[in-house]
């Protein structure tokens, strides 16, 4: 039963990882932009949630609703006025710029908030769980996180496949030159992609802040988890990202059940195995 428990916890944890990964995947998919500051954006969202809760006293879920538009607008502006300037044939400038941004964010957070671990409390929900016997207890917050993750991924799918701007995002991923002939301004389309990614990051960061302790240096590890979830699931596949997050989550919790020190390593090992055996990922639409 403890193994069932480990797997269930892993699945639920995977929802959070999928949320971490969704924005990264979207930005890479639409404009081949690798955002190395993605993990730090998650941490920024975590701090924003904390600050809003502390200053206004609102429920953390309300705080998330407040920071989603803020992060979205910031994402739009960041893409339009900074990232678009380094986008081109060469993949190196975006990597360098976002790497620099990552360092700036970490140090700014350290300067303002110090290195102490912080957490957003959600009252009774912190410890609430549904019990199925002595060895299987499912936390309410992880379940909620998972439901949110699935909903958000479904929403991104809806936007991509059922709206005009989503159609244009997919067309841009196919052929960024020809979308200009459709009347789409790439600078704007790219910024919309980053806006959606940043809005998802706001939700991911808020849920992350409720789940565990975080500090200014927590970003790079979240980035790594996000990358691993994307690669395991398969680049460009939305539901693959969820599957990748779940695979990573299960590997970590089952690994942790074997030996607590084995938790993170197990996740990395699964990632390496997938890279070796099925480098295109579990659900990639690009097989060639």
């Amino acid at each position: 039963m403890i193994w069932v428990n480990a797997i269930v916890q892993g699945v639920l944890l995977g929802g959070l990882y999928a949320l971490f990964a969704a924005g990264l995947s979207l930005m890479f998919g639409v404009m081949r932009f690798v955002n190395l500051a993605h993990g730090d954006f998650i941490v920024v969202a975590a701090y924003l949630t904390l600050v809003v809760c502390d200053t206004t006293g609102v429920n953390p879920f309300v705080a998330i609703l407040l920071i989603v538009p803020i992060m979205g607008a910031a994402g739009y502006a960041l893409q339009r006025f900074l990232f678009n300037r380094v986008l081109g044939q060469d993949i190196l400038p975006p990597v360098l710029v976002t790497f620099g941004l990552s360092i700036i964010i970490q140090n700014a957070l350290l300067n303002y908030y110090g290195a102490n671990g912080r957490k957003v409390t959600v009252g009774a929900l912190d410890t609430a769980s549904i019990n199925f016997g002595p060895e299987l207890a499912i936390g309410s917050l992880p379940v909620l996180t998972f439901v949110v993750a699935v909903s958000i991924i479904a929403l991104i799918g809806f936007i991509s496949y059922r709206t005009g701007i989503g159609r244009m995002l997919r067309a841009t991923a196919d052929d960024p030159e020809t979308v200009g002939l459709m009347g789409a301004n790439n600078a704007h389309t790219f910024a919309i992609a980053t806006m959606i990614a940043a809005a998802v990051v706001a939700i991911a960061g808020g849920l992350f802040a409720m789940r565990t302790n975080f500090d200014p240096s927590a970003g790079p590890v979240r980035l790594l988890f996000a990358f691993e979830a994307v690669i395991i699931g398969g680049l460009g596949s939305l539901w693959g990202t969820l599957a990748g997050g779940i695979a990573l989550g299960i590997a970590q919790t089952v690994g942790g059940q074997i030996d607590p020190r084995f938790q993170l390593l197990a996740g990395h090992l699964i990632f390496l195995v997938i890279l070796a055996v099925r480098p295109q990922g579990l659900f990639s639409r690009r097989t060639s």
């Binding site: 067309a171 020809t178 639409r285």
Partner: peptide, 26 residues
């Protein structure tokens, strides 16, 4: 409007979506 050389259709969009994409300019 330009019909580009080599057609340049969007491969991951359906025929109808390709056509609708053309109306994006409004």
């Amino acid at each position: 409007a330009l019909v580009p050389e080599g057609r340049r259709l969007f491969a991951s969009l359906s025929v109808e979506e390709n056509l609708k994409a053309g109306a994006y300019g409004g």
